[in-house]
Nucleic acid binder design. Structure first.
Lengths: 128, 128
DNA sequence: ATTCTTGCAAAGAGTTTGCATAATA
DNA sequence: TATTATGCAAACTCTTTGCAAGAAT
């Protein structure tokens, strides 16, 4: 992997973002630093940064993928109201890949768990 | 919801399929019975059958959605080798929506959990 | 008669890719 | 110099949607 300024900026944007950004959001932020960067480059680098383990990739049901700066185990809740993504910590699932591997004989490489619901703010808005 | 022959056939196809079919697979099967059915109709009805609780919808990371005839709680493993989907039973997660709701204050409505890995057959093929 | 559903084709969203050029090693 | 990355635009996949015609209540 050769160095590129674009990749550096993309990584920086993800690492500094608190909102589990989509590729589009990363693109918008990255353009503030490198105005000529292209969306294709953002996707390419988000993919390779994920492959190399620098960031996480969260696949959302019915919405664009999110990218996560936090590498340790945790999960996410997607708010149907505002489309924001929130962290969920749930230690119970720590070794679930190995447990499932052992019990089933499949080789489990990863899992993707996303909760869908309503966040505090959206619950308020709809009056509980 | 008004009756339609198309919806009946689509439900029947999902209920008789063992492979967690994609919309495309349902379409191919349905056309054997109703040769003029359209893919749009298949999508529309899979969505409404899911909304009404007749079938489940499984969102896959990096592949088309699958539709599941089995309504009770269980999970899925997606094989990277052959793209097949397998059932995983894992009782630990039975009340996870409520647990997460109680612990976080979010209203959790559903969750989507998919494991990715290699099935028995594909493990054989690649020699372990 | 009214409402829902269909088939068709077009559009939509999200993401990937081919290619010539540019940057890195 | 050889390899990898970029910007751009086009292409691709999956899914949804507008519309006029047809079917169900």
């Amino acid at each position: 992997m050769k160095y590129s300024k674009q990749r550096e900026v993309i990584l920086q944007v993800v690492k500094e973002s608190m909102v589990h950004p989509t590729a589009e959001m990363v693109y918008i932020e990255a353009r503030k630093i490198l105005p000529n960067i292209s969306l294709g480059t953002v996707y390419r680098n988000l993919n390779s940064l994920h492959e190399k383990g620098y960031i996480k990739h969260i696949v959302m049901p019915n919405d664009s993928s999110r990218y996560d700066r936090t590498l340790n185990d945790h999960y996410h809740m997607y708010c149907e109201g505002c489309n924001k993504v929130f962290d969920i910590s749930y230690d119970l699932l720590k070794h679930i890949d190995n447990i499932v591997s052992d019990e089933t004989g499949y080789k489990v490489l990863s899992h993707n768990l996303v909760f869908t619901g309503l966040c505090h703010e959206c619950l308020e808005k709809e009056g509980r």
